[in-house]
Simulated assay, not measured.
Amino acid sequence: MTAASPSPAADPRLVRVELGNRAYDIAIGPGLLAGIGARIAALRPGARVAIVTDRNVAQHHLGTVEASLAAAGITSSAIVIEPGESAKSYAGLQQVTEGLIAARIERRDLVLALGGGVVGDLAGFAASVVRRGLDFVQAPTSLLAQVDSSVGGKTGINSPQGKNLIGAFHQPVLVVADTGALDTLPARELRAGYAEVAKYGLLGDAKLFDWLEGAWREIVTGSAERVAAVAASCTAKAAIVARDETETGDRALLNLGHTFGHALEAGAGYSQRLLHGEGVSIGMCLAFAYSARLGLCSGQDVVRAQRHLEAVGLPTRISDVPGELPDTDGLMTLIAQDKKVSRGQLTFILTRGIGEAFVAKDVDAASVRAFLEEMRAA
């Protein structure tokens, strides 16, 4: 994956996810929620819409979306869940599925996921199973969701034994990424989402990472570079998803940092102690450091990745996670539940340098354990 440095643009951008007759557009730009009704009316005339959102997002954006739908002649209802990763549970799934059934949403209607990654994953999974499959639209309101979880059709909930272990591939029919919505995010959540932006440069596009090192402040503060960064991230992910929709090949590259990160998230109880993007940030640093340990990449690349994420204000070490975590054996148990494990053998995304990630199968568990023990001590 190589690309020139993105350039800012004032107009909304469209990125196409090419999946044959299931292809869909990602619309990116500020102020798009105010026009989402017209987009949906053009896409699915006569459909009713059930909006799934959380209590925090509803305060900022639900009224705008409901007004836009009403102006387009679309009848809507809302299902409001509690915010936070804990909503991605069996109980959360029951709330949303029963809400969709009670709202009499039919197959010709639409589910609209309005919120961050938790809302998108939960609403998308509910849409995949209610009436054996409803179409849905993603309206991501967090940076992490706009550049990652809203694109590609991964939906699901967490198990007490691991993150995202229950779910389905269910592609949206449209993604509307209103970059202006990011202005309502707490600074910590915005930084956490930025980890997924940096991931695209670190895994496969050294030129993008070069650009991010100089542009990250403008991306965080919301200038035109933000639209460019979201578009570049979505373009990178769309290309990978088009090649490998169900993660049988190089789509696994998108999990750079996630094997370590998911274990840390589970160890922290899926709580505010460690946001998903923060876990990914630490996980990417661990993936680079472990790659260097194996002689795959230079120590300079490890330092460069870590310094960039630290400059943004992200955690980069296991010791940055507040509170107690499981011991090394406990973390290894969580890693063994990772979705990429095959026949009991560990699979990691490792790297040969900035922009040169690859899928490493049959990784030696004893080596990983020794590495984690050393990192915890450090």
Score class of each variant (00 low, 15 high):
3 A>Y: 07
9 A>E: 14
14 L>P: 12
16 R>Y: 13
18 E>F: 01
37 G>D: 08
44 R>N: 14
47 A>Y: 07
49 V>C: 10
55 R>D: 09
57 V>I: 15
58 A>Q: 09
87 A>C: 04
89 S>Q: 03
92 G>N: 00
108 R>G: 12
113 A>T: 05
118 V>H: 00
123 A>M: 07
126 A>W: 04
131 R>A: 10
132 R>G: 11
142 S>L: 12
146 Q>D: 12
149 S>F: 12
152 G>P: 06
153 G>C: 08
156 G>Y: 00
159 S>L: 10
163 K>P: 03
164 N>L: 12
169 F>S: 12
181 A>R: 04
186 P>F: 12
187 A>D: 14
187 A>V: 14
196 E>P: 13
198 A>N: 04
202 L>A: 11
203 L>K: 04
207 K>R: 14
207 K>P: 05
208 L>R: 00
219 I>T: 04
220 V>K: 00
224 A>H: 08
227 V>M: 11
228 A>V: 08
235 T>W: 06
238 A>Y: 06
239 A>L: 04
241 V>C: 06
250 D>S: 07
253 L>S: 06
257 G>D: 04
265 E>V: 05
267 G>S: 08
275 L>E: 05
285 C>M: 01
285 C>A: 07
287 A>W: 02
289 A>M: 08
296 L>Q: 11
304 R>A: 06
308 H>A: 08
319 S>K: 08
319 S>C: 09
324 E>Y: 06
326 P>E: 07
326 P>W: 07
329 D>F: 00
338 D>I: 05
340 K>C: 06
344 G>W: 03
348 F>Y: 09
360 A>F: 11
364 D>P: 03
370 A>Q: 06
374 E>T: 15
375 M>E: 13
